[in-house]
Amino acid sequence: TDLAGNLGTGANLAGLTSDVVAPTLAISATDLNLALGESTTVTFTFSEAVTGFDATDVTLAGGTLTGLTTADGGVTWTATFTQDGSATAPSISVADNTYTDLAGNLGTGANLAGLTSDVVAPTLAISATDLNLALGESTTVTFTFSEAVTGFDATDVTLAGGTLTGLTTADGGVTWTATFTQDGSATAPSISVADNTYTDLAGNLGTGANLAGLTSDVVAPTLAISATDLNLALGESTTVTFTFSEAVTGFDATDVTLAGGTLTGLTTADGGVTWTATFTQDGSATAPSISVA
C-alpha cells in the first residue's frame, strides 16, 4: 500500500534471462600438411560470440600465428599460421578458460587435429637399363624419387644426344619411366633434372640429379682378315685371323663365307677383338676365298 492505505498494482522485470552454457570452440585449417616455411589459414569457430580472445590465448609449436581477426562480431576468427622452418611438429591449441561468452561464461579449449609438417626436400636418382647406346638405340630410363612428387613432367628433363618419350608413373608419383632414344648424332648423351623443378606433395622443392655413366658409340666396327699362308697346297691348312676395330658380338663361323676350303675352331682370346680359326684347302680346284659380309 501507499501511506494512505491504497493497495498497489504489481509488475514484472522484463527481459531478465540467464546464460549458463559455456561457449565451445572448433579449430580448422585450409592445409594440414605444411612444407618448409609454408603458411595456412586457421579458423577458430566458437559456438557463440566471445570476448577476451586474442593471439596470446593460442598455444603454438613449430610455427607462428599472425593476423588474428573476426569479421562477424566474435563468432569466427581467422589467422595465418606459418611453419617456422624447424623439424618441430606443428600444433595449435587454445586452453580452457582463456575466453568468455558475452554473458561471462568461461569457454572450453580445443586443438587443431591432424596438423603435420614435412620439411624434408624430396631427392631423385636416375638410372637406365643400358648405359652404352649404339646409333639410334633406345633404353628405358627410370626416375626414382624419395617420395611421391607433383609438378614433374618431360619439360623438367634436360637432354643431349637423344629424345625422351612416354614419361609416366604407375605408383602415384614415386617412380617414373620413359624411353630415351639415341638421336643418331655424335653428341654425347646426357639426361638430367635441375633443382627446384618439382615438389613433394607438401610443397617442398626437390633436388635434381644426373644419369651417371651414359655414353653412346655411333661408330660402326670394321674388320680386317689375314692369314699366315696365302698360297695353299692340296689339303694344306693356314691360320686365319679376323681383326676387328673393337670388340664385337654376334660373330660366329656362320658369318664367314667360304670357297675351296673349310673353317674350324673359330675363337677369341681377347674379349671379341681378335678371332682366329683354321682354314683347310678342301682338295678341289675351286679357288679358295674367305669373306664376311
Rank of each mutant, 00 (worst) to 15 (best):
T165S: 15
G166R: 11
L167S: 12
A170S: 15
A170M: 13
A170V: 15
D171T: 13
G172Y: 13
G172D: 13
G172N: 14
G173R: 14
G173T: 13
T175Q: 09
W176A: 10
W176F: 15
T177S: 14
F180Q: 02
Q182I: 11
D183S: 12
D183F: 11
G184E: 10
S185T: 15
A186C: 08
A186W: 10
A186P: 08
A188M: 09
A188Y: 04
P189Y: 06
I191Y: 02
I191A: 01
S192G: 02
S192P: 02
S192V: 06
V193K: 07
D195P: 10
T197A: 07
Y198G: 04
G203M: 02
G203F: 00
L205Q: 14
G206E: 08
G206S: 07
G206A: 07
T207N: 13
T207I: 03
G208A: 09
A209V: 04
N210Q: 00
N210A: 00
N210W: 00
L211I: 03
L211Q: 09
L211P: 03
A212E: 09
A212W: 02
L214Y: 03
D217I: 07
V218G: 05
V218S: 05
V219F: 01
A220S: 14
A220R: 11
T222R: 08
T222D: 05
L223H: 08
A224H: 00
S226A: 13
A227N: 02
T228C: 00
T228G: 11
A233D: 09
L234N: 12
G235R: 12
G235S: 09
E236M: 02
S237N: 12
S237Q: 07
T238E: 00
V240N: 05
F242W: 08
T243Q: 07
S245H: 08
S245R: 10
E246H: 06
E246T: 11
V248K: 08
T249I: 13
F251M: 05
A253Q: 05
T257W: 01
G261P: 03
T262I: 10
T264F: 04
L266I: 08
T267I: 15
T267G: 04
T268L: 01
T268A: 03
A269S: 15
A269P: 02
D270W: 04
G271W: 07
G272D: 09
